[in-house]
């Protein structure tokens, strides 16, 4: 649940009073033209924006009855429970196995058996296991772009989060990989709460249950995906969806 969220880079306001209720075990899509603040929005949900100098935020992001921006929140722990996948696949320059084991190792889990199990189950959930199970020691950078992105999803799943944030996960992948990732999102929905940012309207329509349309830092419209696409209430949403701009 998000209440009155405002975000700034130095003094430029990029998000203006956003209010959204994100339902658990469903897919929420965030759509909108470039520069509308949708990336800033999703990056505020696991506080990864804190890394950017000059970033400031007001308002509340309520997760498990607690505002994640409260002072006593353990940010590292928060990020472990709210996983994130980025626009550009960013596997570590390590082996496939170590990429996934990383999240557990930094948590102090080093037993081989536990790591093996986590690697296998994460890769299976990310639908990558069959393609890589025979060479887990291969360097992750030798995988194709689509495989790298699924590896990043597996890496995010390894720490057993309950929310998964996907920031334009398919912007750098080919159509076949995109289809695989969409299929994957559909599967993962049963166990995870998913928020996905996309500029691909068909994708939003295909994968999401609810959708929010952002423009110039404002949330223009939010509701069931069906309603947004079939009967948008706001003229601007309609114009964007029908491709009149953006």
């Amino acid at each position: 649940m998000i209440r009155q969220l405002n975000a700034f880079y130095t003094d430029k306001e990029v998000l203006k009073g956003i209010n959204i209720d994100i339902l658990s075990n469903s897919v929420t899509a965030i759509i909108g033209p470039s520069g509308c603040g949708k990336s800033t929005f999703i990056r505020s949900l696991n506080r990864i924006n804190d890394l950017i100098p000059g970033f400031r935020i007001t308002g509340e992001v309520i997760y498990r009855d607690k505002n994640i921006y409260d002072k006593d929140v353990d940010v590292d722990d928060l990020r472990r429970r709210i996983g994130m996948v980025f626009q550009k696949p960013n596997p570590f320059p390590k082996s496939i196995y170590e990429n996934i084991a990383y999240g557990l190792r930094i948590y102090g889990i080093n037993e081989k058996q536990k790591l093996d199990e986590a690697v296998e189950s994460s890769l299976k959930k990310a639908a990558l296991w069959d393609e890589v199970k025979d060479n887990l020691n291969r360097n992750a950078l030798t995988l194709s772009g689509g495989q790298q992105q699924r590896l990043c999803i597996a890496r995010a799943l390894a720490t057993e989060p309950d929310v998964l944030l996907l920031d334009e996960p398919c912007s750098a992948t080919d159509p076949i990989s995109t289809a695989k990732i969409e299929e994957l999102i559909y599967q993962l929905k049963q166990n995870y709460t998913i928020v996905i940012v996309t500029h691909n309207m068909q994708q939003a329509a295909r994968v999401s249950d609810q959708a929010g349309f952002f423009m110039l830092g404002e949330l223009i419209e939010f509701g069931k995906t069906e309603d947004i696409f079939k009967a948008p209430k706001d003229k601007r949403t309609e114009d964007y969806i029908t491709g009149r701009f953006g």
Binding site: R80, Y102, I106, C152, R155
Partner: peptide, 27 residues
């Protein structure tokens, strides 16, 4: 070392020291 790599590491819950020593330094 690309910022994306650091973000990836932070996103699974690394502390700053872990990002520095386990991801940035090897990379």
């Amino acid at each position: 070392v690309p910022m994306g790599l650091r973000e990836g590491a932070y996103a699974v819950g690394s502390s700053r020291l872990q990002v520095s020593l386990r991801v940035v330094l090897p990379a």
